[in-house]
């Protein structure tokens, strides 16, 4: 198959500055205009198209970008990513309903809370490798969900209702017309892409890459692997937490059922489906996997069945994802040496 990723990279490397700026503007303009494409073939049958753009699509992209730092860039398999999303969402819901703080003021608090949860999980577990890490993170996700389910103080199984919308900045966030939510999330995604791209070309990015390829060699070369693994984990957690805050503020109601293992797996599927380690691939993967179930809602009963089939067939056809990482970044990972 054609390697779209390499074609794109070639185009980018060959073009000069004005062409690059123009390309970026064109892409951002097309993406920003998407809410107006609601009446075309893109239309989703049941949910409103602009709502689908926000959740699941936008939210999935944001979370997949965060998880990609952990799984794709540093090679640690995290199956409990939803825990950080839940921590962010619950921080927003609790503070939003009980104090006078608004969404933008809670955002840093929620991100800090998720980062704290990340450190808490990372310190004891990051010495484990590969599949053990997977099962411990999976357990952590379940612990967070079950604790929320069993704590009456934060609503138990019913969750928390009446979470306030974010205050508008010269416009009003509305339930029926979610354009502003969508544009806000696009801005958040752009911000995250910018930060990740900056980090990737600097010391942390190189450290993550070396850890992914061969942790022992990285350690021997003087990379403090434990420290950078914690950083990757906490950075991923911060993005998950930020997404959670925004999610709670948009949905108005959150309950433990929104944060099951299925969400973690779905986000991981987005990362792998799109192409691990490559942010553009991850974005495409998350957009497709977020969009498909809503687009094919008319299949009602067979919807998830089809989703499963797509995963199996696609993984078999393109095991490296839709847009795989660059060739030179590919490492030969030996069997048994971590995920």
């Amino acid at each position: 198959m054609i390697n779209l990723r390499d074609k794109g990279a070639q185009f980018w490397e060959r073009s000069n500055r004005p062409v690059r700026v123009l390309t970026v503007f064109a892409i951002v303009a097309v993406v920003a205009a998407l809410p107006y494409a609601g009446n075309t073939f893109l239309q989703t049958p049941v949910a409103a198209f602009d709502a689908v753009l926000v959740y699941p699509m936008g939210m999935f992209i944001l979370m997949a970008l965060g998880l990609n730092v952990v799984v794709g860039k540093s090679g640690m398999l995290d199956l409990g990513y939803v825990a950080f999303f839940a921590v962010g969402a619950y921080t927003m819901a609790i503070l939003g309903t009980r104090t006078g703080l608004n969404t933008w003021e809670i955002m840093p608090i929620g991100i800090a809370a998720a980062m704290f949860a990340g450190v808490l999980l990372a310190i004891p577990t990051l010495r484990l490798r590969g599949d053990y890490l997977a099962i411990v993170t999976l357990g952590f996700g379940e612990i967070v969900r079950v604790s929320a389910l069993n704590s009456e103080a934060i609503g138990g199984a019913l969750g928390i209702a009446g979470v306030p919308f974010p205050p508008g900045l010269g416009f009003e966030y509305q339930l029926l017309d979610q354009k502003y939510f969508y544009w806000t999330i696009v801005v958040m995604i752009l911000l995250v892409i910018w930060v990740i791209r900056r980090l990737t070309v600097r010391r942390p990015g190189r450290a993550w890459e070396s850890i992914r390829q061969d942790e022992d060699a990285a350690e021997l070369m003087g990379v403090s692997t434990y420290k950078y693994k914690i950083w990757a984990f906490v950075f991923g957690a911060a993005i998950g937490g930020g997404a959670g805050v925004f999610y709670a503020s948009r949905s108005m109601v959150i309950a433990p059922d929104n944060f099951t293992l299925n969400t973690s797996i779905l986000i991981l599927a987005c990362v792998v489906f799109g192409g691990m380690g490559n942010i553009w691939g991850v974005i495409v993967g998350a957009a497709i996997l977020g969009y498909l179930p809503d687009r094919f809602r008319f299949l009602s009963d067979a919807r998830l069945l089809l989703f499963g089939l797509v995963l199996v067939v696609f993984m078999n056809l393109r095991p490296e994802g839709i847009l795989p990482r660059k060739k030179r970044e590919k490492a030969i990972v030996k069997k048994g040496s971590g995920a």
Partner: peptide, 16 residues
């Protein structure tokens, strides 16, 4: 050699 791809396809089969 990607070890997560089979994981996802197994999850897909599980869903199916």
């Amino acid at each position: 050699t990607n070890r997560i791809a089979p994981l996802i396809s197994a999850i897909g089969i599980g869903i199916v």
